[in-house]
């Protein structure tokens, strides 16, 4: 991701824009996720962090 913010995030406050590399298991292809693009598209985002690929939910 691009480093565009530091410090603790707060509910009700804007998240600084970020980007990251992704793998799309439906298209079976690499892509990128961009919060700025989500905002342009008017989409909600749910980020679901997990420790590693063998410990999913």
């Amino acid at each position: 991701m691009s480093e565009s913010g530091t410090g603790q995030l707060m509910l009700g406050h804007e998240v600084p824009d970020f980007e990251m590399d992704t793998y799309d298991p439906v298209a079976k292809n690499f892509s990128k996720f961009s919060l700025a693009e989500q905002k342009q598209a008017g989409r909600w985002t749910i980020l679901f962090f997990y420790p590693a690929d063998f410990t999913f939910v």
């Binding site: 509910l11 009700g12 824009d17 905002k39 962090f49 997990y50």
Partner: peptide, 20 residues
């Protein structure tokens, strides 16, 4: 550990963090 804890975050279309 270099790992991410099980965090879930909902961001609205304006980029505002709504849930954590």
């Amino acid at each position: 550990s270099g790992l991410a804890l099980r965090g879930t975050f909902i961001i609205n279309p304006a980029g505002v963090l709504m849930n954590s």
